[in-house]
């Protein structure tokens, strides 16, 4: 990072700090009732208290666990199903349109069905998160497989590679940018659905924590939870970008 960029960064942080100061000012002057809007000092104190007592750690761990299991299950199943559908022209004409038809369905609408089948349980949450997160990954995989350079398939045919070898050696690597982009989209979906499921089913996690805090009008705890959810969203997406960068480095070098 050169000097000018660094200065801009500092200035940008200063602006953000200005907004936090403004928030503090509004809270101090009680322009908005403190029942709804705690100052950043109180939210911060609540964060520190929550972490030192271990409460927030366990909530954070709960949410991350829901998110990670659901997302990993969706990634594995999504890539597998996407590869099966994407690698066969017949499957693409018969199955892909139905999937495209289902795509605009608000996935949260599956929650009541999942509750009816599995009850207000951990399994329900995992099913819902995985179901919601699978779409972007699966569709990206199908799309990535369909967009593979046709000459690569010709090479595979002339080398008489098996279908599995074609998938693992040609299609998956060349579709990997699409797949990783789909996985990144799914990460956000997984976080949102984790929060919704925790709210609905009372599962241990940040979603449940913010709802309880709201019910008890503990606004500082509520804001602490929301800030932590924002941090979770930010950190997971940055981690995904880094992973994407690492995994796709060979492609950047090729171009």
């Amino acid at each position: 990072m050169n000097r000018a960029a660094l200065l801009w960064r500092v200035a940008s942080f200063a602006v953000a700090a200005g907004f936090v100061a403004l928030w503090q000012l509004i809270a101090n002057l009680k322009l908005v009732s403190p029942v709804f809007l705690p100052g950043p000092d109180r939210a911060w104190a609540s964060l520190v208290r929550g972490f030192s007592s271990g409460d927030l750690w366990s909530k954070l761990a709960g949410t991350l666990e829901h998110m990670a299991y659901g997302w990993l299950a969706a990634s594995i199943a999504g890539i597998a199903i996407g590869a099966i559908i994407g690698s066969s022209r017949r499957m693409r004409t018969y199955v892909a349109p139905s999937l495209e038809f289902l795509r605009p369905l608000p996935v949260s609408a599956i929650i009541p069905v999942a509750i009816a089948m599995l009850g207000l349980t951990q399994a329900m949450a995992l099913f819902v998160i995985a179901f919601g997160a699978i779409w972007p990954i699966m569709l990206a995989t199908i799309h990535g497989f369909a967009a593979v350079e046709p000459r690569l398939y010709e090479v595979a045919r002339s080398l008489q590679m098996s279908r599995l070898a074609v998938i693992f050696k040609i299609a998956l690597p060349s579709a990997s940018p699409d797949i990783l982009a789909g996985m990144r989209l799914s990460l956000t979906v997984a976080l949102i659905l984790s929060v919704v499921c925790e709210i609905l089913a009372g599962l241990d996690g940040l979603g449940h924590w913010v709802l309880l805090s709201a019910r008890a009008f503990r606004s500082a705890d509520l804001f602490a939870g929301v800030i932590l959810l924002g941090v979770t969203g930010y950190v997971t997406s940055v981690a995904m970008s880094l992973a994407e960068h690492r995994l796709l480095a060979w492609q950047a070098a090729q171009r």
Partner: peptide, 26 residues
Amino acid sequence: DRLMEVTVEAIRPIPSIALLPIALIA
């Protein structure tokens, strides 16, 4: 744009549904 970058990047990742309890009490 450059001045607001940190502010925007700080608010954007908050999952919309996390605002639900705040909106609920307000």
